[in-house]
């Protein structure tokens, strides 16, 4: 999960002190050729995905298979978007990923701020708990999380003991809640807030600002770069999430795009070109978000206000 943040840092440092590639010895040329080969192999599935998404139904079954499509068969994309519930799935995915992202930004930054900067009894215990929960594997928890979401009291026809109804299953709340705050997000924001100079906060405190005002007006604006990273990571992980929506929803109209893609592919009349069009549509936003974050997340705004 920290890979993006690391990637950004690496980009900056490597640019500063990368060693040069001066002489062109045969070994280097072979090495470079291998690198190019590896890059092509890595891109191959993507290239096939895109090329297939533009092929006609006949082209898919032609032998030998051509890599470059004859033309751009946009109809595949139209079919993908017209697939049953596709629009609904897009909305569901946006609500799920958006809700998860916003709640992570809000809750993780609040908790991270409290852990980094506030004095309160039990602070060390709470921090130890967060670090400990970093290690709990989410996938091993699918059974109890399902039951907990099902047994939320007073929801989905449940009584106060949480039985009788379906709880928050098949609701947006139920999907978002298990990932609405993550130990990773809290940890990351805490680390960030710890690095912001204490004086900003002290100055605001002397001016009579409350904890919440300090947080909202002073620290949160300073945290923009970290919030951007956390936002991109949260969005990416929720957008790509498969297991939670699979388990926590059973009605077709609550399915996300990832479930939709799986349904599209496993259906009896699956057409590879339409499936690939759908896969392309789903993959693109995350890659764009990543490329955007890679360029914009680097921001040294914090240092400029302190010292000359």
């Amino acid at each position: 999960m920290t890979a993006l943040a690391q990637h950004v840092a690496i980009e900056r440092r490597a640019a500063a002190r990368a060693r040069s590639f001066r002489s062109y010895s045969p070994a280097k040329i072979v090495g470079y050729a291998l690198l190019v080969f590896a890059a092509i192999m890595t891109m191959m599935p993507f290239l096939w995905m895109v090329s297939t998404s533009f092929k006609t139904d006949q082209e898919i079954f032609r032998f030998p298979l051509s890599f470059v499509p004859d033309g751009f068969e946009w109809q595949n994309y139209r079919d993908a978007l017209n697939a049953p519930d596709a629009g609904r799935q897009l909305i569901n995915s946006l609500i799920y990923a958006g809700g998860s992202t916003i709640s992570n930004l809000v809750f993780c930054s609040m908790a991270g701020y409290a852990l980094a900067r506030m004095q309160f009894a039990g602070r060390n215990i709470v921090f130890a708990l967060v670090v400990g929960l970093l290690m709990v594997p989410a996938q091993s928890q699918i059974v109890p999380v399902y039951l907990i979401v099902q047994k939320i009291p007073f929801a989905g026809g449940n009584d106060w003991l949480g039985s009788g109804g379906t709880g928050l299953l098949n609701t947006y709340w139920g999907m978002i809640l298990p990932t609405a705050a993550t130990p990773f997000g809290i940890f990351m924001m805490r680390q960030f807030f710890t690095r912001i100079p204490m004086e900003y906060e002290e100055s605001a405190r002397l001016d009579g600002a409350s904890s919440f005002t300090i947080f909202r007006r002073v620290l949160l604006p300073l945290a923009k770069p970290s919030l951007a990273v956390l936002g991109v990571l949260s969005f990416q992980s929720a957008w790509n999430e498969f297991v939670w929506p699979l388990i926590l929803t059973s009605q077709r109209d609550m399915a996300t795009l990832q479930l939709g893609l799986q349904l599209l592919q496993s259906g009896p009349d699956a057409r590879w070109n339409v499936v690939m069009a759908m896969a392309t549509l789903i993959t693109t936003p995350v890659i764009l978000a990543y490329l955007f974050a890679q360029r914009h997340v680097v921001d040294g705004a914090v240092s400029s206000g302190v010292k000359g």
């Binding site: 809750f107 993780c108 928890q141 907990i148 298990p178």
Partner: peptide, 22 residues
């Protein structure tokens, strides 16, 4: 000490972690 405001800041995240992991 800022006990109460700190707990208020932590509460939502901790409730979620409790429900989803602990």
């Amino acid at each position: 000490q800022q006990n109460w405001s700190a707990y208020a800041f932590l509460a939502p995240a901790l409730v979620i972690l409790f429900m989803s992991l602990l």
